[in-house]
Write a protein that binds this DNA or RNA. Structure first.
Lengths: 259, 259
DNA sequence: CGTCTGGTTGATACGACTCAAATTTGGTGG
DNA sequence: CCACCAAATTTGAGTCGTATCAACCAGACG
């Protein structure tokens, strides 16, 4: 069974939206909170692979929640070079507060075919107004996204090509785990080597050679859009991976739904 | 007169905190809003140059507002490499919402001697509760910080060493302008070549050579902690600088203090 | 006046890029 | 089901940008 084709995971009683799964790494949610999250997916939009969901220069209006598929934020230079500045997977929310800005300073593009929930600013404000626990969880989520972008800066600035790719792949694997999209050692992984190049600041040719090295070293296998990691700990070491920036270490710490 | 040694600018009637100057690039503030900002600077702390203000692993507690001097956020790797992920100048606020997280995933270090205002979470919440216009301006400010980190990713991933340094220097110059810390063509610039290297992912030796090239090309001069830019437009071109990410283009757009 | 930090220079090495071509894969229509 | 095409991956050879290492120099400071 390919769990990655589902936008929710059914754990016995009630199916949970992937965002709820992720937010519960931070805080417990009441059934009421979860239901409110579920209601966010009323207005679903489908986007083809490799199309833009949001374009630089546009006025930001709605918030988007990724239900299925992968997307990326990216920025381009006049000479055509492109940098992916973050990757979005199911359960990720884009641009919580972006409506404050007049125009987008980057684009968001679909990597695979995409299902997103389109949420109006009013809906979002109603949600956070009525569910303070969710509001705080969304702040947490936003802070984790920011921390992730800082970690990418460390990645681009200081890691070797080899470690850089290892780090990126591992991060994605761990993020997919928190939304139930791995089987513990492998997962769907739709990025092309070109995408990996744009995300790591390398060329596709060099990415290719580094992937071969990583594979020769028994750290990861990547083919046919499928990732396999034989030994997560070994990969962590090679990537100099410090998971602290994901802030996954405090389930239910701040707020308890039963409090 | 070295305006950069002042934490406020006196424009005739009443001195404005630098943060107020910056926020007014986004929205007009009422005298009452400005007064509220001024009251944030009651608890001032002094930090020596090259000391840490906040350390990775600590629990975030207060918010800090830079009143005077420069600081940086940075992350380090086990092999000792260091990446500066953002630079903080007077008027900048650190970690608006960080109290939601259990521990910091990066450190904040003083580059010069520093004067910061230490603000409790309660104070911050009172401010935003009583001054909705300020609350929105702070969201805007936070979004600009995030956009800046994305631009840095583009910088590290896609620009040449030459353009990368040009871009960083120009960004700082423009940010200093919005808080009144330049005279239009020059400003104090306390970063060492080592700092520039840590911020751009280059070595100090290479930064040195690129600065010489930039100077030979008449784009900028940097010596004795002083920056001079003969022709801002020329530097913009060389840096492939697109100012959209600073979101300075809509003074008083969202909210008007006289509305 | 000596010490130290920051800046400068030169020689050399290497990691990553470029360009070009070959190969494989996946999708599409006949 | 096969033929075809475009996209993605792989390979090789050669080059270039940036790192490394090691001195040396200048100004700031005690």
């Amino acid at each position: 069974m390919r769990t990655s084709t589902l936008s929710t995971v059914n754990n016995g009683a009630s199916p949970q939206p992937m965002m709820a799964l992720k937010l519960q790494a931070f805080t417990r949610l009441s059934p009421d909170d979860v239901a409110a999250l579920q209601r966010l997916s009323r207005n679903v939009r489908t986007i083809e692979a490799r199309r833009d969901l949001v374009r630089e220069g546009e006025a930001p209006v709605q918030v988007h929640l990724i239900l299925k598929g992968w997307a990326c934020r990216y920025k381009s230079l006049p000479d055509g070079k492109r940098q992916i500045v973050s990757l979005l997977i199911p359960g990720d929310l884009c641009d919580l507060n972006a409506y404050v800005l007049r125009e987008m300073d980057h684009s968001i593009g679909a990597i695979t075919p995409l299902k997103v929930s389109v949420i109006s600013r009013e809906e979002m404000e109603a949600l956070t107004g009525e569910h303070p626990r969710l509001a705080q969880a969304l702040v947490w989520d936003d802070l984790v996204d920011q921390a992730t972008e800082r970690e990418w800066l460390l990645n681009l600035g200081q890691r070797s090509a080899y470690a850089r790719i290892a780090h990126l792949v591992l991060e994605l694997f761990l993020r997919l785990e928190t939304v139930g999209l791995t089987d513990g050692r492998s997962c769907d992984f739709p990025l092309t080597q070109n995408d990996l190049a744009d995300a790591t600041g390398l060329t596709a040719v060099h990415v290719n050679r580094m992937l071969q090295e990583l594979r020769a070293d028994g750290l990861l296998e990547l083919e046919r859009k499928r990732l396999f990691i034989p030994d997560v700990e070994a990969l962590k070491t090679a990537a100099m991976f410090n998971p602290n920036y994901l802030h996954l270490d405090h389930e239910g710490r701040s707020l308890d739904a039963n409090a």
